[in-house]
Simulated scan of single mutants.
Amino acid sequence: MHPIAIAFCADKMMESALHVAMRSALVNLKPGCCPHIYAMVEHFSSADRARLARTLDATGRKYDLTYLEPDPDMFASLPALHGNRSCYFRLLLPELVQEDRLLYLDSDILIRCDLSPLFELDMKGSALGAIVGGTAEFTLDKELRLSLDQSLTDPAFNSGVLLFDCLMWRRQQLLKECVRFGLEYRNEIRVVDQTILNVLFATSCIHLPNQYNTAITSRSEHIPSEAVLHYIGSPKPWDLGAASLLPYAKAWFLELRMTAIPLRRRIPWLTLSTWRRFPKILGGYRRLAVQRMQG
């Protein structure tokens, strides 16, 4: 089995989510595992980093934690997501770590299964593994994919869980290829890094088992008991009122209670950043309301 190496990228707005994702990944690994955890964070103070270490230390599990410092100018010419380009940082990860294999996880997830089997998987020479959740026909970038002579029946994946063969990624200089494509099609890209990764790798990536990226929406049903729960879209569990709107949001808050995040910041109604985020995600609440009216 390859050494277990898991990476996360987050900014200050996602601090609570990062604690939940990182803690739940650690405690669900099989006994005896000592993962190397990599964190690429923005605007985290030394106190924030110490708090994250307290969350992990409290599990009683062994781990190594390394902070990675990205070059923020590398992606300055690529399209932003809500004014932020940190979504591209995951493309840098295989270049920055001295690992054979690396698992990238979004922060808006809750892990309820052992991730170590992914480090035993035969990637068959592919540089990337992902969980295919549909086809290009139902993606926001389908017009771009058609213009590139790709088929609407080609696979499509969410980029929130990615398994990198770092050696192959570096050998094939795939970071440069991603940046080159992003610059050439910057005006057509709809879902930032996810568009780039799907166009370049959807037909060649290794398909990982579905349990490792299980989408949680207002309509989610029959979720496996052992899975990586991914709260895609908005609202997220920590948004205003979402605890009563989203399935498995309460499970996220139960995990949050086990972290070193202060009590006052575990309550969305008392968090200023949550109120600032609210106007930006009103569309998500509207979609939830429409879905409920449609039954």
Score class of each variant (00 low, 15 high):
2 H>G: 09
2 H>D: 15
2 H>Q: 14
4 I>D: 04
13 M>T: 15
14 M>F: 15
14 M>V: 11
16 S>R: 01
17 A>D: 03
21 A>H: 10
22 M>E: 03
22 M>K: 00
24 S>P: 08
24 S>H: 12
24 S>A: 03
26 L>R: 04
26 L>M: 13
29 L>R: 11
31 P>F: 02
40 M>P: 04
41 V>Q: 13
42 E>G: 12
43 H>G: 04
49 R>S: 13
49 R>D: 04
50 A>H: 04
50 A>Y: 01
55 T>H: 00
55 T>K: 00
59 T>F: 06
60 G>V: 01
61 R>P: 00
64 D>Y: 09
65 L>Y: 02
66 T>N: 15
68 L>C: 09
70 P>E: 10
72 P>Q: 09
76 A>T: 01
87 C>G: 06
89 F>S: 02
90 R>F: 01
91 L>Y: 06
93 L>I: 06
95 E>I: 15
96 L>V: 12
98 Q>F: 14
100 D>I: 05
101 R>I: 15
101 R>S: 11
102 L>W: 08
103 L>I: 09
104 Y>H: 10
104 Y>I: 14
106 D>I: 06
112 R>E: 06
115 L>Y: 10
118 L>F: 15
122 D>W: 14
124 K>D: 10
126 S>C: 13
130 A>L: 10
131 I>A: 14
132 V>A: 13
133 G>H: 01
135 T>E: 08
137 E>M: 13
138 F>I: 11
141 D>W: 11
144 L>C: 02
149 D>S: 07
153 T>G: 12
155 P>H: 08
157 F>V: 05
158 N>Y: 14
158 N>D: 11
167 L>P: 02
167 L>D: 08
170 R>Q: 10
170 R>C: 03
178 C>Y: 02
180 R>K: 11
180 R>G: 07
182 G>E: 00
183 L>D: 06
184 E>Y: 06
191 V>M: 11
191 V>D: 08
194 Q>C: 01
195 T>G: 00
199 V>N: 01
202 A>T: 05
207 H>R: 04
209 P>T: 14
210 N>V: 14
213 N>D: 15
215 A>L: 13
216 I>V: 05
216 I>F: 10
223 I>F: 11
225 S>E: 07
227 A>H: 08
227 A>P: 07
228 V>F: 15
229 L>T: 02
232 I>Y: 02
240 L>H: 01
243 A>C: 10
244 S>I: 12
249 A>G: 01
250 K>H: 15
251 A>M: 09
255 E>N: 04
263 L>S: 02
264 R>C: 11
269 W>L: 13
269 W>K: 12
270 L>R: 07
272 L>E: 11
274 T>G: 01
274 T>P: 04
274 T>K: 02
276 R>H: 05
280 K>W: 03
282 L>D: 11
283 G>N: 13
287 R>K: 05
293 M>P: 03
295 G>I: 05
